[in-house]
Design a protein around this nucleic acid. Sequence first.
DNA 1: ACCTGAACACCGTTCAAGT
DNA 2: ACCTGAACACCGTTCAAGT
Lengths: 248, 248
Amino acid sequence: MGCVEKRRILHPCLYKVSLVLGSVSRNNAGLSADRIITEALRIIDGQGLRRLTMRRLGDALEVEAMAIYHHFPLGKEALFEAIVDFVTDVSRTGGEETGDEAAAQDDPADDPEDTGPREDTRPWDERLRAWAHAYRDRLLRHSGALPLIINRRPDTDGALRTLDLHYAAFTEAGLSGPDVVRAGAALDSYVTGAVIHQVRAAGLPGQHPAALNGRYPHVAALVGVELDPDQGFDDGLRTLLSALTRNR
Amino acid sequence: MGCVEKRRILHPCLYKVSLVLGSVSRNNAGLSADRIITEALRIIDGQGLRRLTMRRLGDALEVEAMAIYHHFPLGKEALFEAIVDFVTDVSRTGGEETGDEAAAQDDPADDPEDTGPREDTRPWDERLRAWAHAYRDRLLRHSGALPLIINRRPDTDGALRTLDLHYAAFTEAGLSGPDVVRAGAALDSYVTGAVIHQVRAAGLPGQHPAALNGRYPHVAALVGVELDPDQGFDDGLRTLLSALTRNR
DNA sequence: ACCTGAACACCGTTCAAGT
DNA sequence: ACCTGAACACCGTTCAAGT
């Protein structure tokens, strides 16, 4: 009862030696948290959230489903958390196939050394607009993961870092106290709301105008109107930022 | 092949007769789509969406789970659809326990006869604000159902009726063409974004200020600031509406 | 440390059957 | 018409075992 029993860790040591000597085939499929998250997102994007299954995910990784629990001991809920963190954290670039717009954002850094996150010297509104566009792109690209994002609290490191950047920018814009918090909330709400509206409205109205006519005359009258979501988002964003920072 | 075969509906007739005569105990638990939806929402609100299970729902209704399929033959997905319709359709009052604010909205109608939906004679901005507040209340009350709402297309009757009301109001406000569509999108996005932000931020920041200090100085500086979500929503709503209808 | 295999409790859904 | 009971395929998770 009172004595601490030392665990026998002899076996692992022997295994390590054997592995180094090459006398034992390493039971290692090259699994990692990052690889799991990437593959999970591929399933979500391709087949939808409901088809993301531990067993299917294992198949995609060419591994038994139970192997995933070694990297996410708390199970699927922890995996969801990690997915949200990944999608939400705009600052990390990793793993995304950028497709053909890869060269677009290329601004060659002066020093090739990796000196960590440099200070962003752009004015406050450019910084906020850049974040908003990047965040929106992430959400649209992985819109299948939106249900996960909703009821997960933004209390991770990445979320706090982002919030700090926002608060710093709005402070630089001349706001202070509650106005800063209000502005931060408005900015986050704007992006989320715009993305969800766009996702929901995708492929609408697929209704036959004739079926609408009479019952919903105002909808029917505007049935041909198509708006450019990208343009609309940027316009609304600029309007919002200038409204938030008007002299109060 | 070419001949239409008449179905034998003798048995049901006999059953009906027997039921009327009382000679047969009616195998009827009083189940209905409305009762199922109400009970499903009670589970969602009380225990969360993930715990809404056909079997658990059956238990709550004091019925075998399989009985639900008689009212929703297409299964759980159809039930989800119905739940979204219910939560989303602000015009129907049914089934919600209004708690203690029941008497607040009481404006006694002049004619007690039920003449269907009367024309709303209030000015356009009051109508839109009333809808926005009612919709927000619905979403907040059933915030557990938010993930369901996201990727369901708003192409139901109720959604089109709401959209028609919005377009009519914005037209009355002097907008036309694409501006009406833009305004409608902005209004819907605003409510959704505000609600999701509020739900996500609930109970934040629960962080110890000391833990934040240094790493996130701007967040730490504002850690005590608490905003009234209701007030903030109404302020933002008024600002949005006036911004959308400024002379263009 | 990293992964497998068998097992358990639970889930959505189907289908024949009861009244 | 409305509900039950048994059954099937699939799911998340645990746990002992393998290397």
